[in-house]
Design a protein around this nucleic acid. Sequence first.
DNA 1: TAGACAAGCGGACTTTGGTCCGCTTATGCT
DNA 2: AGCATAAGCGGACCAAAGTCCGCTTGTCTA
Lengths: 200, 200
Amino acid sequence: MNDELLQVLRRAPQERADAARNRSRVLEAADRLFAEGGVAALTVDAVAQEAGVGKGTVFRRFGDKSGLVSALLDQRERELQEAVVFGAPPLGPGAPARERARAFFDAYLTYLADHLDLVGLSETASPGARFRVGAYVFWHRHLALLCADRPDPDHLAHVLLGMAAADLNTELLAQGVGWDRIRAGVASAVDALVDPSCSP
Amino acid sequence: MNDELLQVLRRAPQERADAARNRSRVLEAADRLFAEGGVAALTVDAVAQEAGVGKGTVFRRFGDKSGLVSALLDQRERELQEAVVFGAPPLGPGAPARERARAFFDAYLTYLADHLDLVGLSETASPGARFRVGAYVFWHRHLALLCADRPDPDHLAHVLLGMAAADLNTELLAQGVGWDRIRAGVASAVDALVDPSCSP
DNA sequence: TAGACAAGCGGACTTTGGTCCGCTTATGCT
DNA sequence: AGCATAAGCGGACCAAAGTCCGCTTGTCTA
């Protein structure tokens, strides 16, 4: 009876044991390949072979390459997500919107600097992938809430997140713009775009 | 003698007659294919075949698919570029920075609305292609000049151009956000980010 | 006009993401 | 335990971008 209720509550009703085993096998294989050969070694065929599964299995589990890479990043990103929802201010709730936004971008840029190539892969793998990744939707909601008193928080949140796009920052780095300068520019734009008063 | 001087002045010293002929053949073929079958019909193989040249020739002339599509867009974009440099204010020189920036985005969004899929293709075809297209560099310079009194005009110009990214606006349209709302959001962000006083 | 040489050409080949479909197997029910 | 069934599996197959290299051809000079 209880089990029944629990099962109804879950979105994905169940995942077969072999499916779950393969999921983690694939993720571990991808991690290993990336650790050894960087982003260039992360071809779907190679991951499938290293995991000892068929290529179709990888696509079945993760949808596309972007999904696979996103899953790889998921764990680290989740840490930041929790800090935003449950953590102490200014990252977590309690501080004024502008400060929270600044703290978010500060933390996110640190995360991005550490995983730039993987994030780039996950955002670039297929056109528009960026916006479909779960994390993007999450950050977007977060920022839109912080801008709730603006005329179009939804659009503004997209604009703000544009500053964190991997391809932009990859390009900036390639042009010799360092992370410190990027941070300063982002902070300045956040100040101009996010109202300091609102504090949800 | 004069010819010699002229030849020194050109960047690309010369283009062989057959090369030039093939360039226009390829562009015409691409135009035709796009007119008939939209963006889906624009594969490099198809373009090469339609133009009656080898695939290698297409890549030799245009570098990659992104370059080919950019060349297709070049003509229409050039119109806007000239209006920005030589045209009447507020798009052309003479108006205050903020108004020029607003006028630019207004004009660019019109252009984008008309060619969204082609622009999307040119920006997406290869990762980072967006920033390498000649037009991007041009717009970037333009906006950076308009923000010359800001702490980091270069970075700010990139942020501003992020609002015009094809993939973002494609996503917004897919989410049901119309062009009018996009325009309003962009205008509002421009107002917040571009200093009204500066007028180069 | 002839000859040298760089620029150009073409299409077979490689790489890689993604699809498809017939076979296998875990799971839940009786 | 045995069965029905849907989920899962694998790898052959496809599409499309981009590379390579031996052959061709325009162009410049003598």
